[in-house]
C-alpha cells in the first residue's frame, strides 16, 4: 500500500505536476514541431513513451552495472547514455520497419526525431540524479526509473496532444499575422503552463 501510494505520487508528479514540457522545458522542439496535427501528435507521443521506457531501463542498468561499480559515473554518463539511446532508437527503427510496417508508418517517422529529443536524455539524467541522491535498492531504482520514464512520456504525450487540439482550432482563427505558427504555439504553451500551475503542491 505504502509502495503503491509512492508510485502513484511519482506518476501524478511525472504527468501533471512536473510535466516535462510545461514545467521542465524538456522536449520543446518536437512539442512545437509535431503538435500541428492530432494524429501525428499521438504518434509522436507513443513513440516517445516507448523510447523513454526503454532508455530509462537501459541507462539505469548501465549505471548500476557499469558506471557505478567502476566509478565512472561522473565522466562517462553522458557519453555512454547518448550512445545507448542513439543505438536503441536506430535499432527500434530498423526492427519496426521490418517487423511491423504498419506501426512504422504510424510511429517510425518520428523515431529519428527522438534521438535529439532532450526529453529522453533528460529523463535518464533525472533518474540518475535520483539514484545518486537516494541510495536505495537496485530493483527499486530500476522500477522507479521505468515508471518515471513511462509516465514522463505520458505527460509529454498529454501536453503534445492537448496542444495539437488547440493548434487545430487555432488554424481557423484569425491569429495576428506575426503570431501565426510558432509564436502563438508558445503563447498557448504559456497559458497551458499557467493552467498546469493548478496542480502545484499536489502529492
Amino acid at each position: 500500500m505504502e509502495q503503491a501510494v509512492i508510485y502513484l505520487k511519482i506518476i501524478f508528479a511525472a504527468v501533471f505536476v512536473q510535466n516535462f514540457v510545461l514545467s521542465k522545458f524538456l522536449g520543446l522542439c518536437p512539442f512545437i514541431g509535431v503538435s500541428k496535427k492530432r494524429s501525428s501528435a499521438i504518434g509522436m507521443g507513443l513513440a516517445v513513451i516507448f523510447v523513454m521506457t526503454l532508455a530509462s531501463a537501459a541507462t539505469m542498468l548501465i549505471y548500476q552495472y557499469l558506471l557505478k561499480p567502476f566509478k565512472m559515473e561522473f565522466y562517462l554518463d553522458i557519453v555512454s547514455f547518448i550512445v545507448v539511446i542513439a543505438a536503441l532508437v536506430q535499432f527500434v527503427e530498423l526492427a519496426m520497419r521490418k517487423l511491423a510496417p504498419a506501426l512504422y508508418k504510424a510511429l517510425g517517422i518520428y523515431l529519428p526525431l527522438i534521438t535529439t529529443n532532450c526529453a529522453v536524455l533528460g529523463v535518464t539524467q533525472l533518474n540518475l540524479e535520483f539514484a545518486k541522491l537516494n541510495g536505495i535498492t537496485l530493483t527499486d531504482c530500476l522500477l522507479r526509473s521505468i515508471v518515471n520514464g513511462v509516465f514522463a512520456g505520458v505527460g509529454f504525450t498529454l501536453a503534445l496532444v492537448l496542444m495539437a487540439g488547440i493548434r487545430e482550432r487555432l488554424e481557423s482563427s484569425p491569429v495576428p499575422e506575426c503570431m501565426q505558427g510558432v509564436p502563438i504555439a508558445f503563447i498557448a504553451a504559456a497559458c497551458m503552463a499557467l493552467a498546469f500551475f493548478g496542480f502545484a503542491g499536489i502529492a
Partner: peptide, 11 residues
C-alpha cells in the same frame, strides 16, 4: 517561472 518563459519566447 515556466509560463513566463514560454510567454517571453512567444512574444
Amino acid at each position: 517561472l515556466a509560463p513566463g518563459g514560454f510567454l517571453a519566447m512567444g512574444l
